[in-house]
Amino acid sequence: MQGEEPIVSGMAGRYATALFELALEAGSLDAVSADLDRFEALLNDCDDLRRLVESPVFGSDEQLKAITAVLDKVEIGGLAGNFLKTITANRRLFAVQGILRGYRARVARHKGEVRAQVTVAEPLSDAHRTALAETLNHVTGKDVAIDVTVDPALIGGLIVKLGSRMVDASLRTKLNAIRHAMKEVG
C-alpha cells in the first residue's frame, strides 16, 4: 500500500472505521457521505457552529441540544445524524473533522478511488472542478475524488496534494520565490 494516503488513526480513526462499517453493512455509504458533506459545509460556513464544535466550554448536554437542532433543521438524519449525535454525547465532537477525513479515506479505498486535497484562492466552478478531476484521473490512471478548500491567502492558482505528492502552483508561492530571488541579487 505504499504511496497511498494514510488512513486516520487514533480515536478519530476508530470512530471513522465504526461509521464506515455501519454504513457499509447498511448499504448506505453514499447517503452517509452526502449527509456528512452537508454537515461539513455547514461547519465551514458557520462560525457559531464551528465554535460549538471546537470549544470545550460547552457541556455535552448543550452541544447535543444544539447539534440536534441543527441536524433537524437541515434534515440530516439516519445513520449520519445518529452518528453525529453519538459523538456529541460521547464528548468527541471536537474530533469531527478527523473522523470525516477518516471516513472519506475508507470509502475511497473501498471504491478504489484516490482522494486529492486541492486548495484554491476562490471557489472552483463546476467546469473547473470537472476539468481538474479529469486531469488528475488521466495523470494517476485512477478515479480521483477531490476535496476543495478555499484559502484566499493563495492570491491565485492552486495547491494539489495527492497521496505523498504535492504540486504548489499558487501565486503566493511564486511571489515568495521572486521576493527571495530579489533578496539574493541585492
Rank of each mutant, 00 (worst) to 15 (best):
Q97N: 12
V160F: 03
A121D: 14
L124M: 15
Q97D: 14
E21V: 03
L42H: 07
V167P: 04
R115L: 12
R51V: 11
A34E: 14
R14W: 03
I7Q: 07
L43G: 01
K142R: 14
N44Y: 10
A116V: 05
G102W: 07
I146Y: 00
V32S: 02
I7P: 00
R101N: 10
A127V: 10
V148G: 02
I178N: 03
V150G: 00
S33I: 06
D61G: 08
E62A: 12
V120F: 07
A26E: 14
A26G: 13
L71P: 02
G157Q: 10
L36V: 05
G3A: 13
A108T: 07
A69V: 08
K73A: 11
D45S: 14
I155F: 10
A169R: 06
L93I: 03
Q97P: 03
F94M: 10
G81K: 01
A133I: 12
R51S: 11
F58E: 07
A41R: 15
R165F: 08
A31H: 04
A95G: 00
L49G: 01
A69R: 09
V118D: 02
A181I: 03
A80M: 07
A121G: 09
G98C: 09
G10H: 07
E134C: 05
I146S: 00
K174L: 10
L154S: 01
L42C: 15
T149Y: 04
K142S: 11
V144I: 09
E54G: 13
R172V: 06
G98V: 06
K111V: 03
T130D: 15
A23P: 10
D61A: 15
G13N: 07
G59C: 06
A121V: 12
E113V: 00
A177P: 01
E134L: 12
L154I: 02
V32R: 00
N90H: 13
A89L: 10
E75A: 15
A66F: 08
A127H: 04
H180M: 11
M1W: 12
L19G: 00
A133H: 05
T130H: 14
S125A: 09
M182F: 15
D30N: 12
L42R: 04
N137T: 06
A121N: 09
L43D: 06
V144M: 09
L154Q: 02
G112T: 11
D61E: 15
V144R: 01
A145W: 12
G78C: 08
E184F: 05
A169W: 08
S33N: 11
R106L: 13
A121I: 09
